[in-house]
């Protein structure tokens, strides 16, 4: 956030949240790994980085369940390591 002052007016800011999603200004279209395009009209969107979301490509807070399963302080990696479904009986 230190670059707030003096940036060009059309410059967009994205934010990588520790242990969480990436925040992008919207409206935006995100193309996923399979080439499928997802559009959102929200002023800000959160894109999943942990791979555990049930609403891909958008974050739905599931990184917290991954973190909890992996033990305290574990940092979720950008790619999913296994096929675990943290939200049981989802």
């Amino acid at each position: 956030m230190s670059s707030r002052t003096g940036r060009a007016t059309d410059e967009r800011e994205v934010m990588l949240c520790a242990d969480g999603p990436i925040l992008l200004p919207g409206p935006v279209t995100v193309e996923d790994e399979d080439g499928v395009k997802h559009h959102s009209e929200r002023p800000v969107v959160a894109v999943c980085r942990c791979g555990a979301t049930g609403s891909a490509p958008w974050c739905d807070g599931s990184h917290k369940l991954v973190r909890r399963d992996a033990g305290p302080r574990a940092v979720p990696r950008p790619r999913r390591s296994g096929s675990e479904r943290p939200l049981e009986d989802y």
Partner: peptide
């Protein structure tokens, strides 16, 4: 809310 609040929580806390 499952998508909106995943954005709101980051904006609210950070």
């Amino acid at each position: 809310h499952m998508v909106a609040d995943a954005v709101h929580e980051q904006l609210a806390v950070r």
